[in-house]
Deep mutational scan, measured.
Amino acid sequence: MASQGTKRSYEQMETDGERQNATEIRASVGKMIGGIGRFYIQMCTELKLSDYEGRLIQNSLTIERMVLSAFDERRNKYLEEHPSAGKDPKKTGGPIYRRVNGKWMRELILYDKEEIRRIWRQANNGDDATAGLTHMMIWHSNLNDATYQRTRALVRTGMDPRMCSLMQGSTLPRRSGAAGAAVKGVGTMVMELVRMIKRGINDRNFWRGENGRKTRIAYERMCNILKGKFQTAAQKAMMDQVRESRNPGNAEFEDLTFLARSALILRGSVAHKSCLPACVYGPAVASGYDFEREGYSLVGIDPFRLLQNSQVYSLIRPNENPAHKSQLVWMACHSAAFEDLRVLSFIKGTKVLPRGKLSTRGVQIASNENMETMESSTLELRSRYWAIRTRSGGNTNQQRASAGQISIQPTFSVQRNLPFDRTTIMAAFNGNTEGRTSDMRTEIIRMMESARPEDVSFQGRGVFELSDEKAASPIVPSFDMSNEGSYFFGDNAEEYDN
Rank of each mutant, 00 (worst) to 15 (best):
V463R: 07
N321T: 06
E494L: 14
M137Q: 11
T157G: 02
V329H: 00
M426Y: 00
E114L: 04
F479A: 04
A451F: 03
K91G: 02
T350K: 10
M191V: 09
T45H: 08
R391T: 08
Q399S: 14
L49Q: 00
R8A: 00
G349M: 07
Y313G: 09
K214C: 07
N483S: 13
S287K: 13
G435Y: 04
N202G: 05
H135G: 02
E380L: 01
K325F: 10
F230S: 09
G462Q: 02
A323N: 04
D72C: 06
I425C: 12
I36K: 09
A284F: 02
D480N: 13
M136N: 10
G209E: 07
F304W: 15
P89R: 06
Y496M: 07
M163C: 14
K103Y: 03
L259H: 02
R243N: 08
Q122M: 14
E11H: 07
R305A: 03
L133G: 00
A181N: 14
L358R: 03
G54L: 11
V329L: 15
G349C: 09
M374Y: 14
A366S: 12
V183T: 14
K91F: 04
R98E: 02
M374Q: 06
A271M: 01
T215N: 04
L466F: 15
T92H: 04
Q415P: 04
A153C: 06
A336I: 01
V299D: 11
Y10L: 10
P322T: 10
N492Y: 11
I347Q: 11
I406S: 07
A427K: 05
I138Y: 01
W120G: 08
S170G: 09
L344G: 01
D290Q: 13
S69F: 10
D497Y: 15
S486A: 09
I109G: 00
F464T: 06
S438P: 07
N492I: 11
K325Y: 04
A123P: 05
I201H: 15
Q459C: 12
D160H: 10
G132I: 03
K351W: 09
S367R: 06
Q231W: 08
T257L: 04
F291T: 06
Q415H: 11
M238N: 03
Q149S: 07
H135L: 05
T373Q: 01
N250G: 12
